[in-house]
């Protein structure tokens, strides 16, 4: 990638206006991957100069600044305690510490890469995104928007719930992108199940969740059926990391394991009591 200029905004407002000023202006998050693109960038908007690197406990929610690096997230105690620490776990399996010191959660989320190991757990943590202009929207809603993001992501908001979580990344080798990643959580609103790297981006398994959340008392039969539904109804396809058929099988296995794990864990905590 060729970068013609670097813009250091003083405020989010400046960053936003610079972004919308020219179609070849881009927000630069971690900036690790510019090299891999062939595009020419007119001005790269350097968000690193804004105070967007933080994890803040607001009582009912936790806010993560968009420029927080993956390694900061991995080592943050507040995040370790959210939803069984699945976000910390997921992040700790991405490449090496060095790269995790550079790339940011905002960059990862906005890029919406199919293989993202961040989006899948965030979906099951009921995460919301706060953009400078658009305001707060759910992560699901953001994933449905097509085309380039012409807004500046300020922070990610995760509700603080009594919850249990499970995350599994299936890879051929520890450092590879996932064949699939699976995230399952349980909080007082019920179960959430998401599967990513299908190879397209993480998605909630609504039918599976509906089935579980409508059941009075979730037993193994519900879990089996939910796992089957997740594998059956989410869309999977082939790439060189795995076939559609294998992805479906892995999904069925790991959604089940995830549900069993979070159910036990959530029950042990006495459901609504932590």
């Amino acid at each position: 990638m060729k970068v013609n200029g670097l813009f250091k905004p003083k405020t989010l407002d400046e960053a936003y206006h610079k972004l919308t000023e020219h179609s070849k202006n881009v927000v630069m998050a971690g900036g690790a991957w510019l090299r891999l693109s062939n595009r020419t960038v007119e001005e790269a908007i350097d968000l690193s100069v804004l105070p967007l690197s933080y994890v803040k406990d607001r009582g009912d929610v936790v806010e993560i600044g968009s420029m927080t690096t993956l390694h900061e997230i991995e080592t943050d105690d507040t995040i370790k305690s959210l939803y069984g620490g699945i976000l910390s776990q997921a992040v700790s399996q991405i490449m090496g510490i060095g790269l995790r010191n550079v790339v940011t959660i905002g960059g990862n989320v906005v890029a919406r890469h199919g293989f993202s190991d961040v989006i899948t757990p965030l979906l099951t943590m009921r995460a919301k995104l706060h953009f400078y202009k658009r305001g707060t929207i759910s992560l699901e809603a953001f994933l449905d928007i097509r085309g380039k993001t012409t807004d500046v992501l300020e922070k990610i908001i995760i509700p603080k719930r009594k919850a249990a979580g499970y995350f599994k990344k299936v890879t051929k080798t520890a450092l590879d992108f996932a064949i699939i990643n699976v995230s399952v959580t349980c909080d007082e609103e019920g179960f959430s199940v998401a599967v990513g790297s299908r190879p397209s981006v993480g998605q909630l398994a609504y039918e599976a969740m509906g089935l579980l959340n409508q059941a009075k008392d979730v037993d193994e039969k519900h879990i089996d059926l939910a796992a089957f539904k997740a594998a059956d109804l989410l869309k999977f396809s082939d790439n060189h990391r795995g076939s559609q058929a294998y992805r479906e099988e892995l999904t069925a296995v790991y959604v089940k394991r995830g549900l069993l794990a979070v159910k036990t864990c959530f029950n042990q905590r006495g459901g609504h009591d932590d």
Binding site: K172, T173, A174, L175, D176, H240
Partner: peptide, 26 residues
């Protein structure tokens, strides 16, 4: 275990970088 070569139908290598061709890590 996993080191593998992938090409497109026209013979272009897909596994032509260290993101797509994985060697053992620690």
């Amino acid at each position: 275990c996993f080191e593998d070569v992938h090409i497109t139908k026209t013979g272009r290598l897909i596994s032509n970088n260290m993101l797509n061709y994985k060697i053992p890590g620690v």
